[in-house]
Design a protein around this nucleic acid. Structure first.
Lengths: 157, 157
DNA sequence: TATTGTTATACTCTATAACTATA
DNA sequence: TATAGTTATAGAGTATAACAATA
């Protein structure tokens, strides 16, 4: 039985692209909502905070605000706000950049790194579970197809 | 060249599910952001407002608040707020339900229907363009795979 | 002048929970 | 008691624009 959700507005007469889009949205919104509520309940944090820390985890020396802003796909003011929060909790720190006194590097503290590992492990488990209905081949296929979507979108944007 | 975005945090060592998830998010967030800004600029409206009207367009007799809430995947209070806005602009109306004086049917006015058609046409064009990099076969494949994701997620939720 | 990051602000979206009215 | 919808509230998330310091 079809669930009643965002996709309910799709007509059979709609172009196949639109029907696909509504399904994509329904999938990501549902999963994302659950991630948010689990992050809040189990770790008292939010998705942007988690995401900022995830970006930093890959880069031990830290990232500039402008780089974080690009990667998180949000404007600079917001990165400042999230960084302020995390810094006040001792999870990240701002480090001066040699040769440019306007800029900082934001990096995880050891406390931040420790706390992030716990969250990341849980998060990974939730995602593996959420996508657990797919075989490895299907995952590869989806990954490849969405890669194509992304590349095309960057070209026309 | 790989774009710098949400996916930048993906490691090769991450499980394939997580890498897929980050790609799904990057795709939908990018497209969704553009939709929001185009709806704002060209039609002075928002995605939830558009979505509510889209749900109603399929059902000329209207939908109850509770039904809208389910379909839009948001809680009742929010539907009230959006409906209030649209009603004050004469785009939707609340109609009494015979036999249940607690409930309403919300439906598009003719003005609402007229304005919606314009927006929907533009919206459809944006989506067709956004997903224009895919062949029809690829669209079918994605649609089918995401259907599987959705069904599995409903089972475990 | 341009760039980095911050501050201030405002608005949309959302969930939660208490509430009113009807069933 | 349960249900339909509303109200009130608080917080997340975001964009915009003006600003200070530095390049």
């Amino acid at each position: 039985m079809a669930p009643i959700d965002l996709e309910a507005r799709a007509h059979a007469e709609h172009p196949e692209q639109l029907r696909l889009w509504l399904r994509m949205l329904a999938c990501t919104q549902t999963i994302e909502r659950d991630l948010r509520s689990r992050l809040r309940e189990q770790f008292e944090t939010t998705l942007p905070r988690f995401d900022l820390m995830a970006q930093l985890e890959r880069v031990p020396e830290g990232l500039r605000m402008s780089e974080l802003s690009k990667r998180m796909m949000v404007t600079g003011g917001n990165v400042t706000g999230i960084t302020d929060q995390l810094e006040s909790e001792g999870l990240v720190e701002r480090v001066n950049v040699e040769g440019d006194r306007r800029a900082y590097l934001v990096r995880l503290t050891s406390k931040g790194r420790r706390e992030f590992r716990g969250m990341a492990q849980a998060h990974e488990g939730w995602i593996v579970e959420a996508l657990g209905g797919l075989t490895s081949n299907e995952i590869q296929a989806l990954h490849q197809l969405l890669g194509k979507v992304k590349r095309h979108y960057l070209e026309i944007a």
